[in-house]
Amino acid sequence: MLELEAVDAGYGATTILHGVSLNVQAGEAVTIIGGNGAGKTTTLRTIAGLIRPTSGSIRFEGQDITRLEAHEVVELGITLIPEGRQLFPDMTVRENLLMGAFRRKAREQAEATLKEVLQLFPRVAERLDQIAGSLSGGEQQMVAIARGLMARPRLLMFDEPSLGLAPIIVEQVFSVIDRIVETGVTVLIVEQNVHHTLKAADRGYVLENGRIVLADAAEALLDNDHVRQAYLGI
């Protein structure tokens, strides 16, 4: 479904990704793990069209999306739930969710999608008319995920969904992700919380210094010595 081939990308003169190749099949849950600054976020932002690769190619369902703008990528059905929530702080929760359905294919069905999505997030449903900036971190993360679903994405990408959240909330976030995966949405997750994310995913890639150094089934990675030592602190 999604295929990166030898992608180099970075900010300005600094190259962060060096020849990253990876793929995601329809219906799969794939994760990219790695330390701070390894290039995980850069990978997702490159797929989302926020960063243009300096070389290599990205294909989505057979179409070359390497040079597309971010908003064009969204129109194709790729949605990124960015690191640190990134809500529209002065808008209400409802407005935030409706912005999620901005993409043309989602716009007409926005109200119907809203009902569906809210079933998954009862807590968010209670807060529809609150200003998003006034929510707690955990609630904001839930709104961010809900907003991502509002686009009716074909591929949903999570960037560090557990960042800055209390462990209890992290459990909740991952249980939501599990349920999203069950509904058949294709998912690509980037996380530092390696244990949780490997449990949730089918397959995983390990990214170090902008290079993919390992790729395997999630369970295999959990048992991999390098992963255990480097990321699980074992």
Partner: peptide, 9 residues
């Protein structure tokens, strides 16, 4: 402040 973050093993 987190000088080890993001560097390899």
């Amino acid at each position: 402040d987190e000088v080890m973050a993001g560097i390899n093993q």
